[in-house]
Design a protein around this nucleic acid. Structure first.
Lengths: 186, 186
DNA sequence: AAAACCATGTAATTGGTTACATGATTGG
DNA sequence: CCAATCATGTAACCAATTACATGGTTTT
């Protein structure tokens, strides 16, 4: 039954909250899991089909005149068991491949202004992300008590702390860059 | 000429330092770029061949009796130009997909001990990584002056700051978990 | 004697992205 | 009236991993 599509687990996770269509799942992934998980339709729909065949989910089709059918998926007992097993297993380390770091590592071959551009662009991106996190934090604080809340907070906190660290790094890197180029221009 | 194999740029980068065999490049990637870049032989060798055809690199074969031939690649003027162009272009945002965060997000469905395991495993990993960074930092400090040094420091600092943040997160998450489970057992 | 290093490659598979195709409904 | 939302899917492509295949040399 098992086979390693990561997407599978994200999908099952969403379905433990409530039955959803492919569209719903994508939306949930974007809005809620967005800062540590991405899904694309081109992968989502085929994976859902395979999961259906594997008995991890069931589907019910709702006719909607004019619109395409809405296919709602729900997790099965088998799916729940599989999800539980996966949850308990050690997480795989993330694979890292950073375009930006690669460029900076070879940065000597680049004029300082371009390095500055790279860093400032990154800084701006991280600032935006930070604003989103802060907004989400306020939302969660205003939420009615929910047993899931502590776990959502966990992932949110990680986002906040990492983004903070990235901003700190960008700041200090820009500062270091300035002091170096000034010295050269003297 | 261009085409989007990320590996390509890492390879060209290494070759700007000195001509190398596939084996050398892999080693360099592991030892030096390791914390933000991974390469596998299964990708490296085919990509090198394509780059040869595209004129980005040249190759010279050294016969070694008994051993397989050693094929050394060097960057061409064309390769250098292409690398420069790539360096100056905005970096692509990293794609994020965190197994661990996904598990924690749905953590309510898991007994607290298992969550604790996840976090402690992560903590241990990050501690090890931290030790490596600290060792590298000392190495770089002892290095004879090199114009590349500031840029290497840049990437190292990022590793340090991010790992620090991850450790902080793990600590505070474990603490939060303890206080919650204690309350339940009272 | 075993482990680690040097050295290159192929084949199978996966896991996923992007672009394409279609089109009604709702909200500003 | 335009943009966004709802809604599903396929085809082409691709990058990259893993496992397999081979085998001598150096270090512990």
């Amino acid at each position: 039954v098992a086979r390693g599509s990561k997407s599978q687990w994200a999908i099952l996770g969403v379905l433990t909250i409530k039955p959803s269509s492919g569209y719903d799942i994508k939306k949930y992934a974007e809005e809620v899991l967005g800062h540590f998980w991405k899904e694309s339709y081109g992968n989502l729909y085929p994976v859902l089909k395979r999961m259906l065949e594997a008995g991890l989910v069931t589907s019910t089709t709702h006719r909607q005149p004019g619109k395409p059918d809405r296919i709602e998926y729900a997790i099965t007992a088998q799916g729940e068991a599989a999800f539980q097993r996966w949850l308990a297993q050690p997480a795989e380390p993330e694979k890292i491949r950073s375009d930006l770091l690669l460029k900076l590592f070879f940065g000597r071959q680049l004029p300082p202004e371009v390095i500055r551009d790279h860093l400032e662009r990154y800084q701006k991106q991280q600032q935006e992300i930070m604003h989103i996190f802060e907004a989400v934090e306020r939302e969660l604080d205003d939420l009615p008590p929910d047993p899931n809340l502590p776990y959502w907070m966990l992932t949110l906190r990680r986002g906040l702390l990492l983004t903070e660290a990235r901003l700190k790094w960008a700041d200090e890197s820009l500062a270091a860059l300035s002091s170096r180029t000034e010295r050269i221009e003297e």
